[in-house]
Design a protein around this nucleic acid. Structure first.
Lengths: 192, 192
DNA sequence: CTATTGATTATCAGTTTTGATAATTTAATG
DNA sequence: CATTAAATTATCAAAACTGATAATCAATAG
């Protein structure tokens, strides 16, 4: 009987726009007007579909974590049976696939963690899981290596990767990206 | 004859406070009132001594680049005659010395580079110089290595280092810091 | 067609932020 | 003490931002 609800789709577009906004202006730097403009909706509709500023951040955090988990799962499933680690690195440092957006959004969230202990904890977990995922692939290919060594290498790869994406706003950075990919390969080779 | 000018000192304290502000709230997220509060001065004094929002950012960029250059120079001079690379890594990843503040301020500036091509270029140069500085130390200790290999390793170290500091707002992160330091050492050892 | 309910728009009041100017106070000098 | 130039304070108006409510429009079921 009632008019069909658009909330599901609206939420999507709004949270997508929110991500673009915080990547550009930071969490505290994004205004509801910018967001409404970016989403192509009236400001009142932002409120209607998601809520106020705080609600938006909360909703986006959930969205971010869900997407992130889904993305890594997809990546891991897409890896071939052989040479999984090499394929993973090539994917991570391929400018065509790597979406620096997610990493930059993560940076914005981390910067906003300042006075939000709960968010800080969740972002810490998020990064730790990313490192663990890499370590898991490594130990699959280098089963004889000590776990400590594998963990160190995984942390190094994650750091190199995160840094490349963090510099994306400065431009293409293809030189750095290539050098970083080779450095990551070097790091992996220390396990052989 | 006139009352002595405080501009030099005021500028210092204001730009120091500005750095703290953008580290916490981002460039677009910091307001003049927050800044005045952080600096312990009336808002009108911010304007009197430095200028408006845009002037502040411009002044801070110069300040940041100057300090950064001075800091790296000081670090390189402080390195011992022997085992310079190891000493450099220990310094970079020592939570006592490493001031993540500078790196986090750099992150804030990079995030704000979005619509400022000139700033993006300067930050690109800033990072390239950091990498080159590391590469220079590496090739001093490993003179027989190909320049390309040295550059890759330097990029990896810089990335690992920058990432550690970028995560500082999430808390101490001592585990990651230690793992990152060991990863950096591993990377260096690939040159031997 | 009509009732129902959600989408959409219009509008408002209160607060924050900013840029600016004028007025006032303060410290050094002759 | 009077002068001078700077520091400091007081105050203003315009703009931006936010939260909120009411009114209007639109689609579906009966």
């Amino acid at each position: 009987m009632p008019r069909p609800s658009m909330k599901a789709e609206r939420r999507e577009t709004i949270l997508d726009a929110y991500e673009r906004c915080i990547v550009r202006h930071g969490v505290e730097g994004t205004t509801l007007e910018q967001l409404a403009d970016e989403a192509g909706l009236a400001r009142a509709l932002i409120r209607h579909n998601v809520g106020n500023k705080e609600d938006l951040l909360d909703a986006y955090i959930e969205c971010f974590l869900d997407r992130s988990k889904a993305d890594t799962k997809l990546l891991m499933q897409a890896l071939p049976a052989e040479n999984r680690v090499a394929a993973m690195l090539d994917y991570l440092f391929d400018p065509r696939y790597a979406n620096s957006h997610a990493t930059r959004a993560a940076n914005a969230l981390m910067a906003a963690s300042h006075a939000r202990p709960d968010l800080a904890g969740r972002m810490r977990d998020w990064f730790a899981r990313f490192v663990a995922e890499i370590a898991s692939e490594l130990s699959l290919e280098y089963p004889d290596c000590a776990r400590a060594d594998v963990d160190d290498v995984a942390a190094g790869i994650a750091g190199i990767y995160a840094n490349v994406d963090a510099m994306a706003p400065l431009g293409p950075m293809t030189g750095l990206r290539d050098a970083s990919r080779r450095a990551a390969h070097r790091l992996v080779n220390t396990l052989a």
